[in-house]
Design a protein around this nucleic acid. Structure first.
Length: 107
DNA sequence: ACGATGACCCAAG
DNA sequence: TCTTGGGCCATCG
């Protein structure tokens, strides 16, 4: 049961709905991971059964080697990418949506 | 025990 | 907006 963290990370990623994306930092926080690095480490080891393509970096970009697959899969889910970058403010998955739809005439 | 590596993040220039 | 540097935690040789 020392693998609870390992399990948690998988659960979080699996909980991401299609057409939505989350950042490593968010998953790490939700999974109580000590650092976002561990999320990538887990995905690298046991992410074969997880929608890892729904996990992006904090700036909305994806890892170098998987970028192709990532963008392609995201597009299939309905996520539109822009020059290899995804609009987190639009597709960022938030289990407790705080406030995303800010004022149209102010930022 | 130690150094290097990795699907990362953030601040500063 | 992009690049650089430092910090981060766990695994491997």
């Amino acid at each position: 049961m020392e693998e609870e963290l390992h399990e948690q990370v998988r659960e979080i990623v699996k909980s991401i709905p299609a057409g939505r994306v989350a950042t490593y930092g968010d998953v790490a926080d939700l999974a109580k991971a000590p650092s976002p690095r561990m999320v990538g480490q887990v995905l690298n080891g046991d992410g074969h059964d997880l929608p890892w393509h729904r996990v992006l970096r904090a700036n909305g970009t994806c890892a170098p080697h998987i970028a192709e697959e990532q963008l392609q899969r995201l597009r299939a889910e309905g996520v539109i990418d822009d020059g290899g970058k995804v609009d987190l403010r639009k597709y960022r998955w938030e289990e407790a949506v705080k406030d995303e739809d800010g004022p149209p005439s102010l930022f």
